[in-house]
Nucleic acid binder design. Structure first.
Lengths: 329, 329
DNA sequence: ATTAGCACTTAGGAAAAATAAGTGCTAGGA
DNA sequence: TCCTAGCACTTATTTTTCCTAAGTGCTAAT
């Protein structure tokens, strides 16, 4: 259990370090407290023993440890409300009734990324959680057509395909077969269902059934395993802990492409705002991910803000709360 | 006019420097020539006077100047054929008949980016060169629907919109009005045409005409001004001239988001392969862009490979030639 | 024309020295 | 018992100095 003074010191150190990434010394802190630097030093030593602070070298000031940030986020942080100007910018997007939810989210996260200089991510549900709702084929010309795939969670994708010597009758028939027999199936199982439920049937009366089957097979196979939208990747370059360290940048960029990592963010079933600090983020020891699930009607997904461990937690959590509220109504 | 020996020296320097980015000295070169290092030094001095070589400091070896690379590309370079293994990888993509052209290109450029460690770009024509071919509306549920926009150049986009209290009759009617009256219009002019040609008509018999008009207006307004696909952005981080220089990286990343820059690549009307070296690239003095237009039926666009000025010109030009050939038939 | 030889230049790395920031600990005071 | 002034000590950082390796330009001889 921390004393009031210890908490105050920890809070000061975290907030100071977030503003400016240099280790914090006892002298500056004593100015904000009613005690001498020597006393602060003693307290800091205790906090270090508790694992909440760290030194970069024997005689350096203190830096928050991962546990220190954790304690700050869980116990000390005071949420920051968004300022009116920023709110207004977002309201313009939220007020637009004609926008599909996914566009609303993309646009608002774009704005947030610019305001904060952090990377933002939207994740739809993964393809095994999306059930096929319907497909539609729109002919373009002789050979080409567009296949539209709609899932129950409101996710839409289109793919262009080419078919030779297949009549529009045959296509229509196949489409309605798929809509009748396969709708409701998780997207990532559709390809295999096609093989066992559609292929045998169309084999009987579609001349080019092999080709038709192949085309649809690929359409579903290429369906993105996860609906991901990352905005402001390069914001990471602005953060001092990365701008001197190409290896870290490469690592972060690569992790952002890694389906498994993104998936694990989405998999977390907590509906509230959750903060993954440093190692917890699975991205990089110096990265923090703050995320929340959202649900609006049958559309659901995850939004996340990714920044350095030195992220402005109070501000970002506030923003995410605001986003979630607005999305959900 | 360069002597044969001077050309040989220039070629050696360029190729050596591309392999390994350290200034090339006279001693190493003399080993590849039938003359002493002193002679090479004299020739190098001449080449420097001609502006084809540069020194990094008074007593350093030589580095090709922009003009040096230019001379190399225009006069000295011997095209390199792709190796069989790489060719095979690409053939698998090109052989797939069901893939739409744009998917074929995306996939093959992905492969090329991996093989070369350079960034690749596909550019469709800009929105004023794409004429609206048709739109199609697919209802999803009570309120939501997907609008599919198809251009004459084969570019397809979809947008989800929401409409309250608009009957499917009214929508159908509006869609067919648009298809009849506005098809053939450059995409970026559609919004304004909607206002003058569609709005007045639907105003008469669609109850929620304002809302309907707004929805379509936004759909076309949000239509990407250019169909861009960038693959392997982070490959740039692998190049030594960037991996030590965050500012350069930021600059390049920012330029890659800049519509004007990309547009100027696409605007160039040369149908052959074109090489923009350093400053010519408008991206960065250390960046080279190699691009070519392609045309297949009515689909056309530009593909480009972006790498350091120290790019393997012979290899990349060869690849791009191969790509172009395959795309065009 | 070519080349051997040599004085000269510069970047880059290692070592040494100076500086600044901050710590832990001791001993005295409230 | 808690707090604090004071001081010796540690370490990163910066600056300075020195050294080396690589390569050049120029001159004089072939």
């Amino acid at each position: 259990m921390l004393s009031e003074r210890q908490e105050k010191i920890l809070k000061l150190i975290v907030e100071k370090y977030i503003k400016d990434p240099i280790p914090v010394g006892s002298k500056v802190l004593s100015k904000h407290l009613k005690c001498s630097s020597a006393t602060v030093r003693n307290e800091m030593a205790t906090l270090e023993e508790l694992g909440l602070l760290e030194k970069t070298h024997t005689s350096s000031g203190r830096v928050p440890s991962e546990a220190g940030y954790r304690y700050y986020v869980d116990n000390l942080m005071e949420l920051k409300k968004m300022n009116a100007e920023d709110m207004l910018k977002l309201q313009i997007v939220f007020k637009n009734q004609q926008l599909a939810l996914s566009d609303t989210i993309t646009k608002s996260l774009q704005i947030i990324s610019d305001m904060t200089n952090y990377t933002t991510i939207t994740l739809g549900l993964s393809s095994h959680e999306n059930l096929l709702k319907q497909i539609e084929v729109v002919p373009i010309d002789e050979e080409s057509m567009v296949v539209l795939i709609v899932t129950d969670k409101g996710h839409v994708e289109h793919k262009s395909i080419k078919l030779q010597d297949v009549s529009s009758e045959e296509i229509k028939k196949t489409v309605s077969l798929i809509n009748n027999l396969i709708a409701g199936t998780p997207i990532d199982e559709v390809s295999s269902k096609l093989e066992f439920e559609i292929k045998p049937i169309i084999g009987n009366y579609v001349k080019q059934h092999e080709q038709l089957y192949n085309a649809f097979y690929h359409v579903f196979n290429d369906f993105s395993t996860q609906d991901v939208n990352i905005v402001g990747r390069t914001k990471m370059l602005e953060q001092p802990e990365f701008s001197n360290n190409i290896e870290k940048i490469k690592n972060v960029f690569n992790k952002l492409e890694d389906k498994d990592i993104l998936n694990s963010i989405e998999q977390d079933d907590d509906n509230n705002i959750k903060v993954y600090i440093g190692g917890e983020s699975k991205i990089d020891d110096d990265v923090t991910v703050i995320k929340t699930k959202f649900k609006n009607g049958n559309e659901e997904g995850t939004i996340a803000i990714i920044g350095p461990k030195r992220m402005e937690y109070d501000r970002v959590v506030g923003m995410l709360e605001y986003m979630k509220e607005n999305i959900e109504r």
